[in-house]
Each structure stands twice: as structure tokens, then as C-alpha cells.
Design a protein around this nucleic acid. Sequence first.
DNA 1: CCAGTATCCTGCAGGC
DNA 2: TGCCTGCAGGATACTG
Length: 274
Amino acid sequence: MPELPEVETIRRALQLHLHGRVVEGLRGEPVRLRRPLEVGRLRDNLVGVRFATPRRRGKFLLLDTEPGGTLLVHLGMSGRLLLVRGRSAPVPPHTHLALELDNGAELRFVDPRRFGLAQWLGPGEERSDPSLAGLGVEPLDPELPAVLPHLLAGRRAPVKALLLDQRLVAGVGNIYATEALWRAGIRPDRPGGRISQARLGRLAVELRRVLLEAIEAGGTTLRDYVTPEGELGMFGLRLGVYGRDGDPCPACDSPLRRSVIAGRSTFWCFRCQR
DNA sequence: CCAGTATCCTGCAGGC
DNA sequence: TGCCTGCAGGATACTG
């Protein structure tokens, strides 16, 4: 469920609490995630190494190690990373991987729906990894406004579906695509190639703004979002339209509508968005 | 190449 | 109370 801001929030927490830690042990089960979890390979490569500065690319976390190699993590819809103090804490269901750290804490990967991913990337494998190689522009990249018109040019698919396509823009998910389109005043079902330059400029600005605000707020809380420290994210961004079918539009009081685009729920204002 | 749909999973809320 | 349905922050393998 995490989108870019949630993943970035986790990355920052890991920067504080995982950076510099050495892996002393690893537990896991060979469960089928998006790709099969290769426990043996993870253990062989991770035990004894030290975590360096964590990176993010789109919704992926890249946990680099010294002297080399990377633990690649994607949280899918329901994945969480938890940093747990002490190893006697009860292990909740769907904990697929646990890294025992040299300060007595434990990094756990929990993912009930198993759409997520945890995989070892050896030095150099990052470039050849299929899901990383195809990722599009980072939406916080200053070049986004210049690039967005080219990405959408000639496309007839709904602009919302295009925003969700990680090969075009990497890191935008259902919530922030929905919110950015509302802020920009663009109907989510409008064909991507039929939006004026000026309005695409506004979309790029609003997308950037909503992502930055969400990062500032430490992500968005829907139901069960939890920071890596295991605390509920209670200071999440206040959403304008997502999940508010039938509620009055915060801008014009018209009842918000729900429709389905690219198989995903979309919320929008018939009056504000054209 | 592009657009649209089905599918992988579990948990939970709401209706009856 | 229980059972059933639909829905969930994602990505990808298909089909036309």
C-alpha cells in the first residue's frame, strides 16, 4: 500500500536506525512473494555485512551493504518493515523475513497479501534487474514538468492510468494520483494526450506538492500504516478526495464521485475537474 | 506498441 | 452470531 511518500518515510527511518548495523543472523521461510523468497541466498549474502545508506527508487527500497550488494525490498499492497527492539518480542503472522542486528534489534518484513518482494541483488545486478531497469522518471525530479508532456503525448489511456504506470513515472500510486488530479483540476478519465501544456504543467506542480506534503507529514494513514519503528503513523496527510465518495468536495461542496479506472477506485469532483 | 482485463493473496467491513 | 460479497495503498501476464 505504500506509495512514494510512505517508502521515503521508511527510508529516512532506516537511515537513522539501520544504517551502520551489522546483520548477525537471518530467519525466514521460502514463501511465494512476487518472486519466491530465496532465504538461503539472502542468508549467505547478508549475514556478517553492514548496512550503508538506504536508497529509494520509485516504490523500491535499496538497502545497500558494505562491502557491496543490496537488499531490494518492495512492500506491495500490504507489506511493512518493522524495527523491533529485542528478539523476544512476539512474531506476528506473515512475518516472512527477520534480520537479527548487532544492537539486539530485529528488522522484520511482514506482508500478509504477499504482493511484496525481498531479494538479494549482488554487485552489478541492480542494472539488470527487470523491475528496476524499466522504471520511469522520479516525480520529485526537477525535470518532471519538462518530461511529462512527452510521456503522455499521443496516449489515449486515461491520465490516471498513465500516472500509475511505473515505467512512465516511478512511485505514484492510487492515492496520490487521485489527489494530484483533483488539485490540478483534471478529470482522471481524460485521455493523457488530450491535456494542454499549461494544465500538464499544473499537474506536475501539484503532483510534486502533494508528494512533498505527504513526506513532510510522514506518509498517509489509512488503516494500518506503521512506521519502521512500529508506531502508528498518526500524523498523516489529510486527503482531499481519496475514499470520500459522496462527501462534499472540499473546494466546491459538490458531492464527490467514485469511478473505476484501470481497475482502481478513483475519486473526483465533477465540477472542479475537467 | 497500446489499452484493457484477470490474477496473484489475506483481512476486514458491511449487508443480510 | 455467522456467512457472504466486495474492496484494499501494486505489479504483471495475458488478450485483442
